[in-house]
Every structure is written in structure tokens, then in C-alpha cells.
Design a protein around this nucleic acid. Sequence first.
DNA 1: AAAAGAATTTCCAAATAATGAAACTAGGTT
DNA 2: AACCTAGTTTCATTATTTGGAAATTCTTTT
Lengths: 262, 262
Amino acid sequence: MANEKRGDGTVGKALDVLSEVAEIGSPVRFSSLLKTSKYPKATLYRLLQTLLNQDMLSYNEEEQTYKLGLKLVRMAHSAWLQSSLAPVAVPFIDDLSEKVGETVHLAELDNGQVLYVDKRNPASPIEMYSQAGKVGPAYCTGVGKAMMAFLDEAELNKVISKQAFHKYTEHTITTAKALRKELAFIKKEGISFDRQEHEEKIICISSPILTSSGKVIGGLSITSSIDIHSLKSLEKFKPQLLETSELIGKEAGSWSFPEKNY
Amino acid sequence: MANEKRGDGTVGKALDVLSEVAEIGSPVRFSSLLKTSKYPKATLYRLLQTLLNQDMLSYNEEEQTYKLGLKLVRMAHSAWLQSSLAPVAVPFIDDLSEKVGETVHLAELDNGQVLYVDKRNPASPIEMYSQAGKVGPAYCTGVGKAMMAFLDEAELNKVISKQAFHKYTEHTITTAKALRKELAFIKKEGISFDRQEHEEKIICISSPILTSSGKVIGGLSITSSIDIHSLKSLEKFKPQLLETSELIGKEAGSWSFPEKNY
DNA sequence: AAAAGAATTTCCAAATAATGAAACTAGGTT
DNA sequence: AACCTAGTTTCATTATTTGGAAATTCTTTT
């Protein structure tokens, strides 16, 4: 549960506490944190104070609870803007989602997980459990598999070793072996499908976003539900999906930030 | 420019460096950071390493540049979910934006600035982190003024002292005195307008979100351009805007997180 | 009003981490 | 070959952080 990072001194500890607060997911009291924390009372207390001072946490006096601070939201906005993928992709996914009339997700691979960095949801919003900043499993999502399929052997091994292979649905792939087989197929086809592997009724078609040198920098998907689409009908989007991915890849690969003068 | 925080030891310094990277806005090299940093070479270097280790920064080997890491995006998502305002407001602003057919913003007051925490745009739907996380001035935006108008005297003074009163447009309020007069009026009316004070052609009608005890917890606005709407026609949305704000305020004020068992 | 529980603060010697000048390395340049 | 420059590492010194226990404050309960 706790995030056992090597060393990194006080900073590591402070960020550790921050992660703990994040993982709990709702405002926490000191005593509650203390129970699960690996730091002794006085230490934990001081770390919390520092984090508060820095606006990384906020404190509710009435309830005596700590939660994550708005500074994180501000910083994440900067992080998003600094990314070479997400800001560049904006016009392309605007365009794609409008043309296909379905939900489009843009994701990156982060620590073996899929991190959604943008989402476009046109007219008919299906109720779904996804959002920018949200993370999901790689082995059972369309974007996750599409990205993994194009990693080199060394990277892939690392990523696969991080998969939990939890059986979310009847269709979830639950072994590394089966996954590798699927990935080989995906690599050949250039696209992947999510066949209700993560959520019942939710399907998607997805492709990796590659730089001109073939490096995986993200994944793009068109998501729908079996009430509206079949895998076959999703497959019709393949040309547009691939074209958009390619455009984003080219753009993101060559993008450099406007020079600043100091 | 640099963020002179009191003490907070190494953690403060590390976060300081993080902010510096954020402020620069694009990937930076070590030497570039070193020039503006108040920390000596070796210290700065180690702080960067720690931050890298913790995934708060990411490093591009080819370009030898640092930028903000995806961990921030993940954490911001958690922060957003932990907020007592934004998640609770979702269905209400969905509803409002659909009914009025215009862009709706949800904001909080953070350090004297307006921090947008959500946005709904019926024409070309959500761009999550390209908007949420964005900050703007309080004294010349509809939400900013609406929120300020309902602060108590002590809080208001603090916030006003942080305003830059930069003249963005012909219509920008540029003195504290004029602002206070405007705020008194807003408090009486219950709503505020942005009369192209921040951006040419952009107008909005806005209201504060208050708890049942009258505490300001956010602001809500309906934004349009003078090409489509006049202030008069925006004013027609007043009842719906106020009703939505009230509903959100009630809900957010009484919302408590589902209990967790540990 | 006493008891109990939680949060906060104090103590300080021991343990740990941070410091920064200087040395080193790896590329590229003159 | 000597000379940059940018990045990285070293190491003895200095400064901060640690943590266990106890004291204090504050709120809630009995």
C-alpha cells in the first residue's frame, strides 16, 4: 500500500505523505493518517505542516481534515501544457470526435498504467468512468494494448511485469501469455480493440501514436457501447483513427517550444 | 519572480524548484535553471534528481531538458475528486450548460486569483486540463467579482491587496476604489457581469456559490461573446444561474465523503 | 466537572541529510 | 593538445531532521 521510495530524504517523505492523502481519496484526519503512516507522530505532523504551508495540502478547520490542495491543480495545468503530446493533439482530437460523433480518448503510458490526458465527448455522452488525469489498467484497455504492442522488448517486459491481470469482466485477458499473443496481432493490424475487457458493454477501437522514429508517445481511442456499436461498425473508423494518430505523432514528434529569452 | 517561501526546509526548496520549472512553461536545461535559481549548482542538481526520482519531473535525455511530470496530472485528478465543490457540481453544470446553450465555468478563489475548476462548453465539449487548472485575475472577471462581493471585510481586504489592476481592455476596472463600489452593487444584485473587462468581446453573467451559512465556496458563470449576446440578453439567464448556484451550494455544503473503513 | 480522546507542541541527543567548493568527466571547439 | 562548457560526483563540514515521551490545548463524552 504505502509507496516505498528509495531515499530522497525529506522531500521523498513529504511526497510520500502527499501520496498517502491522495490514495485515501477523501479528506483525512491526522489520527487516521497516523494509523497507516510509516512515520511517527511528530514527524508526520511536521510533514503535514510543511505541505500545508506550501499549499500542496489544504486543511479544513471544522472537520480537522487534510486534503490535496489546489496548487496541484494549477501545477497539473502547467504540466499538461508542457507535455509534448496533449496540447499538440487538441485540434486533431477535436476534429476526430466531431467527425465520428463518438467519445475520443487520448492517453499516455505512465508507470505501466494508462493515463488519460484528454477526452472529447460529443453530443451523446455515454456514462463512463473516465476523465483527464484518471488512470486505468494497460492490459485490458484499447489504448493500453495499442501502446504496449509497439514498445520494444525491454520496455514491454517492464510494463507487463507491472500488470495486475485482474479479471474485470468475462472478456478480460488474464495472463501475460495471452496478452503477448494479442499484442503481436495488434502490432500486425496497427489497431487494437477493447472487447468489453475493462467494463461491461464498453468497447473501443484504438491506435498507438508514434513518432517518425517509431517511438510510442501515446494512444488514441474511439469508445462506444455495445448498445450503439458493434466491433465491426467501430472498425469503420479505422482509417480516420490511423490518420489522426499519424498526424498527431508527426506534429508532436517535431514540436518544439517557442524560444524564451532570459 | 522566484517564490520566496518561508522555511519549510528542503521540501520547500524542492517545491520551489518545481514551481520554477512550472513558471518557465517549457522544458528547461539545467544550466538555464541554474542562471535564475537561487540555489547553488550542486544543490539545484540534487533537488532536480530527487524530483525526477519522485516523478514530479520528467527528463528528456536527447534534449537534456526537465519538465513537469505526469505524476502531477495524476495527483491533480485526485485533488479535483477530493474537492467538495467540483465533483458535486458536475450534474448541475451539465444541466445548466445544456439548458442555456452557452459556456459555463466553475471557479474557486485561490490566493487572490480565480482558479477554474471545471468548464462545460456545449458547442465544442470539454477540454479538461486545457481549462481546468487555468488561473485568471479576480478583479476583472465575472466569477472573480461575484466571489469577492460576498467575502467578509477581512478576507476581501486580503484579496484586493493581491490584485494587479492591470488594464486588459478599455473596460477593465483599474482601482480598488472602483472595484469596491462595483462589489457593493454586485452584493445587492446577487450577480455580476463581465463587461469585456478581461478580454475584448467576451462578456458573462456570474454568481457566487455560497454555503447555507453564507460562506463563499466558488463562482459560476455563463460566458458568451458580444457577437451572440448582449448583457441584457445574458441577464435573462439570471434565474437559472442563481438557482443552479444555490443547488450547488446546498449540495456542496452538506456533502460528506462516503465513509471508508480502515 | 471530571474523564477521555484528539490534535498540537515541546524537549533534545542521536541520526541523518544537506551543503557547496572543488574535482572530475564527457563533448565539443579553438 | 590545450581549452571550453555543461553536467555530474565527491567529501568533509555543517545544519536539519528525527522520534519517543511527556505536556498542553481543545473538544466531546460521561
